[in-house]
């Protein structure tokens, strides 16, 4: 589904990604872990198409298409969803109004009919219940006045509504207490299917207790330095990122 080959990205004269390779097949859940500054958020921004990079080299193929050629909204319509680490506030724009515009633009591009207000609302209410979201989310502006945890829940809610093929979760666990984390993880697990892939970007192993990955990769200094199964995460948690770095230099 997603194939990243020798990806390099530069910001403000600094090389952040230095030749990253990654292969994700349909239905797989991958976790990328790494210390601060390793390039984790850069990876999610490159995938979603954020225009802050001096240069991007390498190749990213998503379902046979060159992802790097596409505008951000086109990537979204193709099925790439990014759950933001810091979801932005948009004053005055209703949360559901916004989401309906997004859902319908994605549906249009897929050749599906638009959802009318009633169908949309019924569906939205169902998903909101699943995520134990308060009714007040309906009336509020996008992310405005939401707590950190509410914002993250809202991201997963949008993900559920947009039915993407590839979900990139950027530090979704940060700022969540344990109860909220469980709810969010349940929401994600409910979306797991043989056609949908996940890329979890996280600093801590904690999230992976609830969303169990098929593969774990360690990102350090712009490259994936180690890959393994879910047990790698536990090992990392025990020994710290230092451990990976040392191993790299020692051998």
């Amino acid at each position: 589904m997603l194939s990243i080959h020798d990806l390099k990205a530069k910001v403000d004269g600094k090389n952040i990604l230095k030749g990253l390779n990654l292969e994700i097949k349909a239905g797989e859940v991958h976790a990328i872990m790494g210390p601060n500054g390793a390039g984790k958020s850069t990876l999610s921004n490159v995938l979603a198409g954020r225009d802050v990079f001096e240069s991007i080299e390498g190749k990213v193929t998503f379902q046979g298409k060159n992802l790097l050629d596409l505008e951000p909204e086109a990537r979204a319509r193709e099925g790439v969803f990014l759950a933001f680490q810091y979801p932005v506030e948009i004053p005055g724009v209703g949360n559901l109004y916004f989401l309906r515009a997004a859902v319908n633009s994605v549906r249009r591009s897929r050749g599906q009919s638009e959802l009318d207000a009633m169908d949309f609302l019924t569906l939205a209410k169902q998903k909101m219940r699943d995520l134990q979201m308060d009714q007040k989310f309906q009336e509020r502006s996008v992310n405005e006045g939401f707590s950190g945890g509410e914002k993250k829940r809202n991201e997963i809610f949008q993900m559920a509504m947009l039915e993407p093929k590839l979900c990139v979760l950027d530090e979704t666990d940060s700022g969540l207490d344990i109860d909220a984390l469980r709810v969010v993880a349940d929401g994600v697990n409910r979306l797991r299917s043989s056609e949908r892939s996940f890329l979890l970007i996280t600093h801590y192993q904690r999230l992976l207790d609830y969303i169990v990955p098929d593969y774990v990769h360690v990102l350090a200094d712009g490259k994936i330095v180690k890959s393994g199964g879910k047990e790698l995460a536990l090992e990392l948690e025990k020994k710290g990122y230092q451990w990976v770095g040392q191993k790299e230099t020692n051998g």
């Binding site: 979603a48 198409g49 505008e71 951000p72 909204e73 990537r75 979204a76 319509r77 969803f81 990014l82 933001f84 979801p87 932005v88 948009i90 004053p91 005055g92 724009v93 209703g94 916004f98 989401l99 515009a101 997004a102 633009s105 994605v106 591009s109 502006s141 949008q158 947009l162």
Partner: peptide, 19 residues
Amino acid sequence: YCKQRGISEEDAVSMIVNG
């Protein structure tokens, strides 16, 4: 943020202005 959700730039601007 809007574009990542599949909304075009011009729709995003008009949505934000209306908000």
